[in-house]
């Protein structure tokens, strides 16, 4: 902010502002606004494709919000020892995390609706489950689970899926199995609607070095 001194020695701001700055900044702000509103996931995807090809080592925190994951993409390498620290950040909804690919569907008046993944990523994978708090239920399916600490409420039916109550958490530690390629994760609770509402993400598993 500049100030000028008039002939009587009083301070005055020079209010004769420039239209160019005004229109430039306004256009920029509108552009950013539109980009953030309509293209934030697209932009994030480009960034992530460009800069984020390094596989994650160790613990990756996966936060569950209503109805989205953070992060929306994870990269692993076959053979690495990794931990998913899953946390449900919602105050109101329970969420799960299923990993797989392909879909099982059920018909509805509005077309087929995905109910879960066709292929369960966890099939035959040894996984150590620890730090389980406020777990709604845990379906093991064909995962080979070992438990550290309190054992969560186990349920059956469907793919391997830890479902967390609001504020719940669970850690899944495992060695990335030899299943390279693109995988998806998603939440199918509440009659599959969380997935419809956009609660999904992708995992890239790179082949072993």
């Amino acid at each position: 902010m500049s100030k000028t001194v008039d002939s009587e020695g009083r301070f005055h701001r020079d209010t004769d502002w420039q239209p160019g700055v005004f229109f430039g900044v306004l256009a920029l702000v509108l552009l950013i606004g539109v980009a953030v509103l309509f293209g934030r996931f697209w932009i994030a995807g480009i960034f992530q494709k460009a800069f984020d090809r390094v596989p994650t080592q160790g613990t990756v925190h996966v936060f569950q919000f209503d109805y989205a994951y953070e992060p929306r993409h994870i990269t692993w390498r076959v053979g690495d020892r990794v931990t998913i620290a899953l946390r449900n950040m919602s105050d109101t909804h329970w969420h799960e995390m299923v990993i797989g690919r392909g879909y099982d569907t059920v018909p509805s008046a509005f077309g087929a609706i995905a109910t879960q993944f066709k292929t369960d990523f966890w099939d035959g994978v040894p996984v150590r489950i620890s730090n389980a708090h406020h777990v709604d239920n845990l379906v093991l399916n064909k995962a080979r689970a070992t438990f550290v600490g309190s054992k969560p409420n186990l349920a059956t039916g469907g793919d391997f899926s830890p479902t967390l109550q609001p504020g719940g958490s669970i850690n899944l530690t495992f060695t990335v199995p030899n299943k390279p390629g693109e995988w998806q994760y998603g939440c199918f609770v509440q009659q599959y609607m969380h997935y419809v509402a956009g609660m999904n993400g992708t995992i890239t598993i790179l082949p072993a070095k």
Binding site: M1, S2, T4, R13, D14, T15, D16, W17, Q18, P19, V21, F22, V25, L26
Partner: peptide, 10 residues
């Protein structure tokens, strides 16, 4: 060297 004021909206 007096700089002009920023446009108020900016």
């Amino acid at each position: 060297r007096v700089k002009r004021m920023l446009p108020p909206v900016v």
